Amino acid sequence: MKSWFSWVPMTLFLAVIWMLLAHTPLSTATLVFAFVASLIIVLMSRRLRPFLARPKRIWVILKLTCVVLADTFHSNVAAIKIVLGYPKIKYTPGFVSIPLTLRDPHGLAILAAIINYAPGTLWAGFPESGDYVQLHILDLPQESDWAAFIIERYEKPLKEIFE
């Protein structure tokens, strides 16, 4: 049963995406092609993943999604103000190292995506030891504030989801 669950959702997802992107009328042939092509892609790509993610706590995932959307919106507004020079905003760009305790590779990949979604933040370095992440921040008034922000808002929920 586990093997079914690991490839059926992705196959359905890819088939739906194909149907949405195809500029052809909905027909049986298009449906069959979408599902067969999706199934082949998913089954061939399974070897590329050493292990599958095992996310837990759906409510934490939904809460984290809302937090990321809100933070991305606020970051967009702040970046627009900085770029347009909205009444002479003074900003101080810089690098900050944030200690990490998250070890799951899927959680780290999502953390990297979250950080890079927001304009003004960039995942700039990650050593092999995985003890910290280095970020470039467009407006960095206090390094300790950013470290606490990333750990509390993103790392803790990701640990609950993946570890």
Rank of each mutant, 00 (worst) to 15 (best):
I98M: 06
M1W: 12
D131M: 08
S75C: 08
S129C: 11
V36N: 01
L39Q: 08
I115C: 00
F51Y: 10
D131F: 12
L20K: 03
L100K: 06
A148G: 07
Y132W: 06
S3G: 05
T11V: 06
I41N: 10
Q142M: 12
L39F: 15
M1R: 13
P157K: 01
P50A: 12
D104V: 00
E143Y: 00
E143P: 06
I161T: 05
E163N: 10
Q142R: 05
H23E: 14
R46T: 13
W4R: 09
Y86F: 15
P127N: 07
S38M: 03
L100T: 07
S27P: 02
R57W: 13
L48G: 08
R103Y: 00
L140Y: 06
L111T: 03
V60A: 15
L21M: 04
W59E: 14
L108Y: 05
S6W: 00
F73K: 10
I137Y: 06
F33V: 01
T28V: 15
F33L: 03
R103H: 02
L102N: 05
I89D: 04
I161P: 02
S6D: 13
K88R: 14
T65I: 14
P119W: 02
M10S: 10
W7Y: 10
L111M: 12
K63Y: 13
F13H: 02
V77P: 03
S45P: 08
L135Y: 04
F162Y: 12
D131E: 12
L52Y: 05
E155R: 06
I137K: 07
S38F: 04
G94Y: 12
F95E: 08
R153K: 15
L64P: 10
A29E: 08
E128C: 00
S144R: 10
F95P: 03
Y154H: 11
P127M: 05
